[in-house]
Amino acid sequence: MNTTIGQRVAIVTGGSRGIGRAIAERLASDGLAVVIAYGNNTDEADKTVDGIAAKGGWAIAVKADVSDEDAVNELFDKAEKEYGGVDVVVNSAGIMILDTVANFDLTKLDRMHRTNIRGTFVVNQRAARRVRSGGAIINLSTSVKKLAFPTYAAYAASKGAVDAISLVLAKELRGRDITVNAVAPGPTATELFLEGKDAETIDRLAKMNPIERLGRPEDIAEVVSFIAGPARWVNGQTIYANGGMV
Rank of each mutant, 00 (worst) to 15 (best):
140 L>T: 05
125 Q>G: 07
143 S>P: 02
151 T>C: 04
132 R>K: 15
146 K>E: 14
132 R>C: 10
134 G>N: 11
127 A>H: 04
124 N>D: 13
116 N>W: 11
131 V>P: 03
136 A>R: 02
118 R>N: 13
139 N>Y: 02
131 V>W: 04
125 Q>D: 01
147 L>A: 14
133 S>F: 00
131 V>E: 01
128 A>Y: 02
149 F>P: 12
123 V>D: 01
138 I>H: 00
129 R>Y: 00
125 Q>H: 14
150 P>V: 08
140 L>V: 12
126 R>C: 07
118 R>P: 07
147 L>I: 13
132 R>G: 08
134 G>M: 09
117 I>Y: 03
132 R>Q: 10
118 R>D: 12
129 R>T: 11
117 I>C: 08
142 T>F: 02
128 A>T: 10
133 S>V: 12
140 L>K: 01
153 A>K: 05
140 L>F: 07
128 A>C: 06
139 N>V: 08
131 V>Q: 01
144 V>A: 06
122 V>F: 02
132 R>F: 00
150 P>T: 13
134 G>P: 11
136 A>I: 09
151 T>R: 09
138 I>M: 07
118 R>K: 15
139 N>C: 11
145 K>Y: 01
131 V>Y: 00
118 R>Q: 14
126 R>L: 14
137 I>N: 02
152 Y>V: 10
120 T>Q: 06
116 N>V: 14
139 N>M: 07
142 T>R: 09
147 L>R: 11
153 A>E: 04
144 V>P: 00
151 T>W: 03
130 R>Y: 03
135 G>P: 09
119 G>C: 12
126 R>M: 08
143 S>V: 06
134 G>S: 08
124 N>K: 02
116 N>F: 12
152 Y>T: 15
119 G>I: 13
120 T>C: 13
116 N>S: 10
143 S>Y: 00
123 V>K: 03
131 V>H: 00
125 Q>T: 13
135 G>A: 07
130 R>D: 04
117 I>F: 05
124 N>G: 12
132 R>V: 14
126 R>T: 14
140 L>E: 02
130 R>K: 15
140 L>H: 01
126 R>A: 11
147 L>V: 08
149 F>A: 08
121 F>C: 03
120 T>H: 04
133 S>D: 13
125 Q>F: 02
139 N>E: 06
153 A>G: 09
123 V>I: 14
144 V>M: 05
122 V>A: 04
142 T>D: 03
122 V>E: 03
146 K>D: 10
148 A>V: 15
117 I>G: 06
149 F>E: 06
134 G>W: 05
148 A>H: 13
127 A>Q: 05
123 V>R: 09
147 L>Y: 00
149 F>V: 06
122 V>C: 03
152 Y>R: 07
153 A>C: 09
147 L>S: 08
127 A>F: 01
120 T>E: 08
121 F>E: 06
153 A>W: 00
145 K>W: 01
145 K>H: 03
135 G>S: 11
